[in-house]
C-alpha cells in the first residue's frame, strides 16, 4: 500500500504546475484543459456510477493546485447539472418514489446546510483528509455486491404513516414493495447531506446505502430516487457557496460544461457498453486520488 501511495504520488506530481505566480497558461488553454478534464470525469463518473463529482475536487486541487474552496464550488454545480440532466431519462422508467425522496430531502437539505456551514470553519487541509476518506469508502461501497436486500421483516410504522410503500414496473406487471428502517435511513441521509455540503459532492453512494441497506427499498427504485435527491441536496448548499464566493465563474464554467457533456455521453454509452473494465480502472483512479488527498491534507499542501 505504501509503495502504491508513493508511486501514485510521483505519477501526479509530474503534472503539478509551478507555484510561481507567472503561470505560462492563458485563460483559453486553461479553460480548454478543464473542459476536457470535466468531460472525462463526467463520462467515467456516469459509467462507473460513482458520479463525476468525486474526481473533480482531487483533479483541481492536486493537478492544478486550485484552492479547495473553489474546487468544491465548481464540483457542486457540476453535480446539480448531472443530476438534473439525467432525471428526465430516469423518470421515463417510472422507478423513482417521489414520497420517499421528498421525505428524505428534509434530512439531506438540512444536512447540506450544516455541511456548508462547517466548510467555512474547517481548515482546508482537514477537508482534504475527510475528502480522501470519503473517496476510499466510496470505492469500497462500489465493489460491494449490488442487488436487492431482503424486504423488511415488518413494515416500519413511520413508513406506513407516511405512505412510503410503492410499486414499480417489472417484467410481469407492477411489483409492490414495503419500506423499513426509516429512522436509520433518515439519519444516514442527514450524513449524506452534510458530506455533500462540506465536500461539494453528490454523496450518491451514501444515499443508495441508506435506501438499500437500511430501508430495504428495491435497488432500481433507490438508484433513481437517489439521483433525483442529489440535485435538490446540492442546491441547498450551492446558494450558500455562491454568496460565499466559492463559485468562481472562470473556473466553474469549463468544469460544469465538461461534466454535463461527459455524463450525458456516458449515460448513453451505459446502455450498450461493457463497462466492467472501465469501472475497475476508474475505481483504481479514485483510490489513488483518495490516498493522494489524504497525504496532501496531512502534509498541509492544500493550504
Amino acid at each position: 500500500m505504501l509503495l502504491f501511495a508513493v508511486s501514485s504520488k510521483s505519477l501526479f506530481q509530474v503534472n503539478v504546475p509551478d507555484e510561481s505566480p507567472c503561470s505560462p497558461l492563458n485563460t483559453l488553454t486553461f479553460s480548454a484543459i478543464l473542459l476536457a478534464g470535466g468531460l472525462g470525469a463526467g463520462f467515467l463518473g456516469a459509467l462507473s456510477g460513482l458520479g463525476g463529482g468525486v474526481v473533480i475536487v482531487p483533479l483541481l486541487t492536486i493537478v492544478f493546485g486550485v484552492d479547495i474552496r473553489y474546487a468544491i464550488g465548481a464540483s457542486l454545480v457540476s453535480v446539480i447539472a448531472t443530476s438534473s440532466g439525467a432525471a428526465a431519462a430516469y423518470v421515463k422508467e417510472g422507478f423513482s418514489n417521489i414520497r420517499i425522496g421528498m421525505f428524505l430531502e428534509i434530512a439531506t437539505t438540512l444536512g447540506a446546510l450544516f455541511g456548508a456551514f462547517l466548510a467555512a470553519y474547517i481548515a482546508p487541509s482537514a477537508i482534504a483528509i475527510i475528502f480522501g476518506v470519503v473517496l476510499l469508502s466510496s470505492v469500497y461501497l462500489s465493489f460491494r455486491q449490488k442487488g436487492d436486500f431482503p424486504p423488511p421483516e415488518k413494515p416500519d410504522r413511520i413508513a406506513q404513516h407516511l405512505r412510503l410503500a410503492g410499486s414499480y414496473p417489472a417484467g410481469d406487471g407492477e411489483r409492490s414493495y414495503e419500506v423499513g428502517g426509516v429512522t436509520t435511513g433518515f439519519g444516514l441521509m442527514a450524513l449524506a447531506g452534510a458530506l455533500s455540503g462540506l465536500l461539494g459532492i453528490g454523496s450518491g453512494a451514501v444515499k443508495v446505502l441508506a435506501m438499500d441497506q437500511a430501508m430495504r427499498i428495491p435497488f432500481k427504485v433507490s438508484t433513481t430516487t437517489s439521483n433525483f435527491m442529489i440535485g435538490v441536496t446540492a442546491a441547498a448548499s450551492a446558494g450558500i457557496y455562491l454568496h460565499r464566493g466559492y463559485l468562481d465563474p472562470g473556473l466553474a464554467m469549463p468544469v460544469m460544461l465538461g461534466v454535463l457533456g461527459g455524463s450525458m455521453l456516458g449515460a448513453r454509452m451505459l446502455m450498450q457498453a461493457r463497462v466492467r473494465v472501465l469501472r475497475f480502472v476508474f475505481n483504481l483512479v479514485v483510490l489513488a486520488l483518495g490516498i493522494e488527498m489524504i497525504i496532501n491534507g496531512a502534509m498541509g499542501k492544500l493550504l
Binding site: 507555484e19 505566480p21 507567472c22 503561470s23 505560462p24 497558461l25 492563458n26 485563460t27 483559453l28 486553461f30 479553460s31 492544478f64 493546485g65 486550485v66 484552492d67 474552496r69 473553489y70 460565499r244 464566493g245 463559485l247 468562481d248 465563474p249 472562470g250 473556473l251 464554467m253
Partner: peptide, 19 residues
C-alpha cells in the same frame, strides 16, 4: 469571456480570494 480575455494569463486560483 474568452473573446475578451482568452489570451490573458490565468487568474491565480492557488489562493482563495472571493470574487
Amino acid at each position: 469571456l474568452l473573446l475578451r480575455t482568452g489570451g490573458a494569463p490565468v487568474r491565480d486560483y492557488h489562493h482563495f480570494v472571493p470574487p
